[in-house]
Design a protein around this nucleic acid. Structure first.
Lengths: 330, 330
DNA sequence: AGCCTTGCCGCAAGCGCTTGCATTCCGTAG
DNA sequence: CTACGGAATGCAAGCGCTTGCGGCAAGGCT
């Protein structure tokens, strides 16, 4: 079978403990011995059995990452950032896609818990009253949702939204639509509130539509609704909805830009690729992924310690592209 | 801490072995005792420690999945299919994104090996001479690459490509371009060969361009090259390149459809969303994911057995949308 | 010179679970 | 009544690694 610690120990003529210490790095071992052990281990092709290691040590060097939907282009950058950051700290990442099923979040978290050193949950949709079940699976950090008593990294939509509404106002739109995201989504609540505030402040009439699921298809549906309301400008809950809407509008002969201005949120990689390119509110996905890793590893490194839950806020800003233009002067 | 097997055993007044057998299901245990044990275990909130379990049993109920790039929309459907299929067979999936770095494939596979019951590697770019290092990490199955002596699930590009070329020919295009994918990609080799064959057969002039990375940006670059060659029809290595190309063409005032026909490969979810919608060769990603899971689990269930490596072939077909049109009659 | 540090290393006890084999207890065949 | 075959359960030996504790030698101190 595979070479074990004991095999290496025998080959070097030392005890397994010493070999273990030499290889794990942290403990004090004579430099010369350490070098020799490393050499022999490499020659024998020794690969530590991570399972055995984590059984005793309690550590697994794995981070669990739970996302709602990998097919939504907003998440891959986060996932990649998490993986990269984790790798640079010697960890690997176990990804679970819960397919937008809120109930699965707790279930998957529970299953993962024992195998990982910490959990990162992105945009959880678990109802507020059950969140505590997640929180107690600490170390855990939430991304894109504020959870009382838990550490989380959030993006503050207000700035970007404010910019977006101002942008539309300055283009002469006096009435805009907001396409709501999923009903129980914390992000949507946050975004919607920000839109309302900005509209009130600037004296703009707001028409709320939805809820819509964060999927292209929902955007297609939204398009017809928007059309029937004779809106000249909309802000969508996310890029996917915005893109679906644009596609449908174009199909119906409505020119996005000249006839209707569209703003998405997330600034996903696709927004620069659509035609016209999509004006979108940039949400720092990679940054939040990295931050989340740092936070969760900090917690994992200080087990037991009652750390005051941290909340990191990241900012958003508007990226203006081709889908917004002066209001039609009909 | 958490309740262990021993705790439950003590509570029930039986030995740990019996409890273990009762809970794992497979072994013979009196029905009454089994029921009682289950009841007590549930009441105590017992959750088996998977790490300990896999240390002894050698099984982990985890499948490893290695993909080149989760941000490429071709992969999420595969990933989801794999996850779903695995879940229905009681397994979870550990995903690794190697960011298109061929060297990482072997590295990640090695790291994962001990923790998982089997490996699925999608579209590996590992050079042929190193593939054996992967193969010996069995149980392992490859998707989208034929590997001598290993089981794999492939898509046969030839049919779809044949249809695509015929489609272009019937639209009056006598000269078409093929945008190559990454230089050492097995898929690209397969697709390119199919295009050549079809062109030869139909007496169509073929212009090869590239290689290009499977990314939107590469497609943007390709666009200018295509333009300079005065091509009226192109088949791209994948949808991403095709989409990038379309975006750039549109930006330059070239009308995709009337002025130039574009065909992608993969039929990723985005192809229906672009404008115009992208004619693409459908590749059954989900099907291949599911098939891969079945194959790898079969292998895992019969350890040691020298199974004859299986090769499953899936078919492709052309999906005609808005990006292809009759050749301009200049 | 005696004693205490300090540095390096080995001992042994597990981590929580699975599993081959032994054991016990019946029912049943002989 | 003895013997024997199962079924149900217990015993105990690990899986491969980590880690607290203690041993031992070499050097520093008074």
């Amino acid at each position: 079978m595979a070479v074990t610690l004991a095999d290496v120990a025998r080959a070097v003529g030392m005890s397994a403990s010493t070999v273990s210490r030499a290889l794990s790095g942290t403990e004090k071992v004579n430099e010369a011995t350490r070098a020799r052990i490393h050499k022999v281990a490499r020659e024998m092709g020794y690969e530590p059995n991570q399972v055995a290691r984590s059984l005793t040590s309690g550590r697994s060097d794995i981070l669990g990452l739970i996302v709602p939907d990998i097919a939504n282009p907003f998440f891959p950058p986060i996932i990649k950032a998490v993986q990269a950051r984790a790798a640079s700290r010697g960890k690997t990442v176990l990804i679970a896609d819960v397919d937008e099923h809120p109930a699965d979040e707790i279930k998957r978290a529970r299953i993962m818990r024992k195998r990982v050193d910490g959990l990162i949950v992105v945009s959880p949709r678990t109802p507020a009253e059950s969140m505590s079940q997640l929180v107690e699976l600490a170390p855990i950090v939430f991304v894109n949702r504020e959870v009382p008593g838990a550490t989380s990294v959030l993006v503050d939509a207000s700035e970007g939204v404010q910019e977006a509404v101002e942008h539309l106002a300055s283009l002469g739109h006096g009435r805009i639509g907001y396409l709501n995201g999923p009903r129980r989504s914390w992000s949507n609540e946050q975004r919607r509130t920000a839109v309302r505030a900005a509209c009130t402040e600037l004296g703009i009439e707001l028409v709320e539509l939805g809820p819509f699921e964060p999927q292209i298809q929902a955007g297609v549906r939204a398009a017809d609704l928007v059309h029937s309301k004779a809106l000249t400008a909309v802000i969508a809950y996310d890029d996917l909805i915005a893109l679906g809407l644009m596609a449908r509008m174009t199909e119906r002969g409505v020119k996005v830009g000249p006839d209707i201005s569209v703003i998405g949120i997330d600034d996903s990689p696709m927004s620069g690729m659509a035609y016209p390119t999509l004006t979108s509110i940039h949400v720092p996905g990679s940054r939040s992924g990295m931050t989340a890793v740092d936070l969760v590893l900090d917690m994992a490194d200080h087990p037991g310690e009652e750390i005051t839950p941290q909340v990191v806020q990241l900012e958003t800003r508007l990226i203006i592209r081709g889908s917004t233009a002066p209001a039609p002067t009909s």
